[in-house]
């Protein structure tokens, strides 16, 4: 008790101010926690094993720069409209020559972030037969999507897409096969395999 009294007596004068400052900073820290940007740097080690790597890092200034070179017609106009309010697009895609080059442990840190506040799972399709996982996570704020994360894991391919900022999923899904880039044929599964082989 004596000790406690002594401690209080010698309490530094600036301590209340520091506590106030801490309280003031708390909302900012919470807001920062709501940022839809995922840390996917842990995947960089997979680049050495991958046969093909696609890495896209476009932050707000780069998006603005890119939008200046989008034309005012058709797909470019749609893309410009889509990225208008975006804060960033981050993509990492690895294609491997053989299976087993990456493990669940590589994806786990990303999934852990997606379990955090703000994120909710929109789609999670896991196919045991094809050993494929397709997951779509969104972050909503006031009823609007402010973040998107797509994880597509196949035996020889792993793709992580992270979009930060307001996004229209409908417009985004319509862009496939446009923008001067050929259709990526991501749905490569033959029709005969389109049986009941998946389980959520």
């Amino acid at each position: 008790m004596t000790t406690r009294t002594t401690t209080l007596k010698h309490r530094p004068w600036f301590l209340p101010l520091a506590q106030l400052a801490l309280l003031a900073l708390l909302p900012a820290a919470t807001a920062r926690g709501q940022d839809a940007r995922l840390q996917i740097k842990n995947l960089e080690k997979l680049a050495d094993k991958a046969a093909e790597v696609v890495e896209v890092t476009l932050d707000k200034p780069m998006l603005e720069l890119a939008s200046k070179f989008l034309k005012d017609e058709d797909d470019d106009a749609e893309a410009r409209e889509l990225i208008k309010d975006m804060k960033g697009i981050y993509v990492k895609s690895f294609e491997f020559d053989k299976e087993g080059e990456y493990s669940d442990a590589d994806i786990e840190p990303i999934l852990a972030q997606l379990k955090g506040p703000g994120w909710s799972k929109l789609v999670d399709v896991r196919s045991k037969r094809d050993r494929e996982t397709d997951a779509v996570y969104i972050m909503e704020l006031d009823g609007k999507i402010v973040g998107l994360a797509v994880i597509a894991a196949e035996p020889k391919e792993l793709t992580i897409v992270n979009i930060v900022g307001p996004i229209d999923l409908d417009k985004l899904s319509k862009l496939e096969g446009h923008l001067g880039v050929p259709h990526l044929d991501l749905d490569r599964k033959p029709a005969k395999e389109a049986r009941h082989d998946s389980e959520k």
């Binding site: 896209v56 998006l63 720069l65 200046k68 893309a79 895609s93 397709d134 899904s173 991501l186």
Partner: peptide
């Protein structure tokens, strides 16, 4: 800017493709 535009196209294609694939899988199942 041209490099950024190319990156943007690739990113949007990948995002769009993977998103559609996930939705298609859901609908199929």
């Amino acid at each position: 800017a041209e490099a950024a535009r190319e990156q943007l196209e690739v990113a949007l294609q990948l995002a769009s493709g993977k998103l559609n694939r996930a939705f298609r899988e859901v609908r199929r199942v």
